[in-house]
Amino acid sequence: MQRYILSRLIQSFIMLVGVLFIVFFMLQLTGDPVALMVSRNASPEQVEELREELGFNRPVMVQFADFVSKAVRGDFGMSLRHHQPAMELILERLPATVELASMALLFAMVVGIPLGLLGGSNPGSIWDTLARGAGLIGQTIPNFWLALILIMVFAVGLGWFPSFGRETRQFMGLALPTKSVILPAFALGLFTMGQLVRFTRSAVLEIKNEDFVRTAYSKGLADRRIYIKHILRNAAIPLISILGVQFGYLLSGSIYIETIFSWPGLGNLLAESIGNRDFALVQAIAFFTSLVVVSLNLTADIAYGMADPRIRYGE
């Protein structure tokens, strides 16, 4: 098990370094942001002066080395636009994104898993049709389109929800979500819901035909007991890893949704910082979200390994 964890840790580390590398050089391809920062009336000398001040006139490799050496110490530099440490900006926006991702995941789980179980247990039934339909819809509807439709119908048409923004209720020092999260969470969680339905359904179908289930039936165990003890428990193992991956996706994949709903989270900040070529901030957000995704995958892998001996022995 230790070797398994260690190898996963090393893989994650390599992944993160790769992310730093790609993000840095992709941004370099677009040129430096100085042209966007100076007033249009600036003279070439003023542009050059600013370029020098910000260090963009140094060779790219020197800039990269400087970036990495600071990044490993958690210093991603100052946001060019906000004149504030990039990490500080990320931490300011993090709670909103975590709230949205958690609510989206909660919705996906509460709807997706039971529907998948019902569909998988009763193939060909009305439940199964429903599950397959939900899986298909969830995975095919583009979420930015859905977001606009939701606003038109439920905010403008029916007036049930606010059309944008995040409202919270303070309770014992905590910022609790209010109904303002429902539309964005639904739009964001729908894809994951579809994934979970399909995944749970096929896992149940597969396990139902396994030898140990047939043995359980032949032993004369009650249906209910077989479901809970054998089928569900076994289907839950791969589900853990899927949930980890999906939560990572939800945390990082909300650029459209956050922008459309004006949700004050990381995705919104990332969209804005790309538009302004705020290098330090784009790099910091990209690294931060990869760190979250990689850590969640790592946790899921380890949990998976603990739950299923076949994984860790296959190392």
Partner: peptide
């Protein structure tokens, strides 16, 4: 209130 998406500004 910042609302970067213009379709959302229309809704608001």
């Amino acid at each position: 209130r910042p609302i970067p998406e213009s379709a959302t500004r229309v809704a608001a």
